[in-house]
């Protein structure tokens, strides 16, 4: 049977699917923080359905994380463990997870909307013949519709919210969940749960995708996707040196530095810091924008931040009107003054 036929012949039988699964992404030996958000969310969804919460981990030596996952709410952990799985490789990981999904038949599957989760999730969803929602920010159980997953997501650069439903019985209903959206589960040390070591047989499998090397980001700063505080600079920063004022404040607050596209395109800071439609999407608790006008393509990347502070010379700049708190003035005067004030209050002291 061709691959196409085998996907299309996967039976649609929602009644045989049970439990809420969470993909516990491991990156360089650590569970990524979003996993704990997924456990928080998954626990709630599982309770509403009166089903179990399960976590699945893939990698080398990953069963060391099983108890952590159980402590944080998982009732059962599936560990897909093999020495050849040290690095994430789409093709291999997708095959192993798909095989497990088809065998164990979960009802819902949540993945982090990380680089890995977003690309891996969509491959798995097709292979398992199911529907997937990308980058959801609100998830709940739809009781009127027999327990379907309401997955709500921003689209069109955040100008439109859409609630997606998997109405034709495909399972598991799958969603990737935007990082920094939910609280992290609190641990209950010593909680009991089952650990299932999934047998991995890669003998007949010839991977056509190989991980060659990892080049770590040299900067010691936190990545913007995991930062609770982001200080972001735009064209008003005026040059690469101008970003020093932002780095200083980020250091004091334990935050990360972001940027608008104009600042990135001007060559003042690297692309990984770009926030917005063609950059990255962030959801910090506090977003401080300095010298950013707030065009719609920039807002697409940060408008779900909890608190937005805008510092701009121009009181009419669009972001000055949207921000929770706006400060009119020269960023080169305001930012150092904020930094000093914070240091006075004891921030940034080691």
């Amino acid at each position: 049977m061709s691959n196409e036929q085998s996907i299309l012949s996967i039976p649609i039988s929602p009644e045989t699917h049970k439990d809420v699964w969470v993909y516990a992404e491991v990156r360089h030996d650590n569970l990524i923080p979003t996993v704990f958000e997924l456990l928080f969310l998954g626990k709630k969804l599982a309770a509403d359905l009166n089903e179990k919460l399960c976590a699945v981990i893939i990698g080398k030596n990953v069963s060391q994380h099983a108890q952590t996952l159980i402590d944080h709410g998982a009732d059962k952990v599936y560990a897909i463990e093999h020495d050849h799985l040290e690095q994430f490789v789409d093709e291999t990981y997708a095959k192993l997870l798909t095989d497990l999904l088809l065998k164990e038949k979960p009802n819902k599957l949540l993945l982090p909307a990380s680089t890995i989760g977003r690309s891996f999730g969509s491959r798995v969803a097709v292979q398992a013949n199911t529907g997937i929602t990308a980058d959801a920010t609100e998830l709940s159980i739809n009781k009127e519709k027999g327990g379907l997953l309401n997955a709500t997501r921003p689209s069109f650069g955040g100008t439109l919210m859409a609630t997606i439903l998997c109405v034709r019985g495909h399972r598991p209903e799958t969603a990737t969940v935007r990082p920094m959206t939910f609280p992290r589960a609190t641990p209950e040390p010593g909680r009991k749960g089952d650990v299932v070591k999934v047998p991995v047989d890669l003998s007949g499998f010839k991977p056509r995708e190989r991980h060659i090397r990892f080049e770590p980001e040299v900067s010691q700063e936190i990545d913007i996707s995991q930062a609770t505080i982001i200080i972001s600079g735009g064209y008003g920063v005026g040059g690469a040196n101008g970003f020093n004022a932002l780095h200083d404040l980020a250091k004091t607050l334990g935050g990360a530095v972001g940027a608008s596209r104009r600042a990135v395109d001007s060559g003042w800071i690297s692309y990984r810091h770009q926030i917005g439609l063609t950059g990255r999407v962030v959801r910090p608790k506090l977003y401080i924008a300095a010298g950013i006008s707030g065009q719609i393509q920039h807002l697409a990347g940060m408008n779900s931040a909890e608190t937005i502070v805008c510092i701009n010379k121009d009181p009419e700049a669009p972001l000055m009107k949207l921000a929770t708190l706006s400060v009119q003035g020269d960023l080169f005067e305001i930012l150092p003054a904020i930094n000093k004030e914070l240091q006075k209050c004891g921030f940034g002291a080691k």
Binding site: N129, I164, V167
Partner: peptide, 28 residues
């Protein structure tokens, strides 16, 4: 497999407080 069951405009933040002050220090 999936349908859009509803679409809506997110409640846009409509702006908050302007921080006033006579000097950068006071604003900070």
């Amino acid at each position: 497999p999936t349908i859009v069951s509803k679409s809506f405009r997110p409640s846009m933040k409509t702006g908050g407080t302007r921080i006033e002050g006579n000097s950068p220090e006071e604003k900070a």
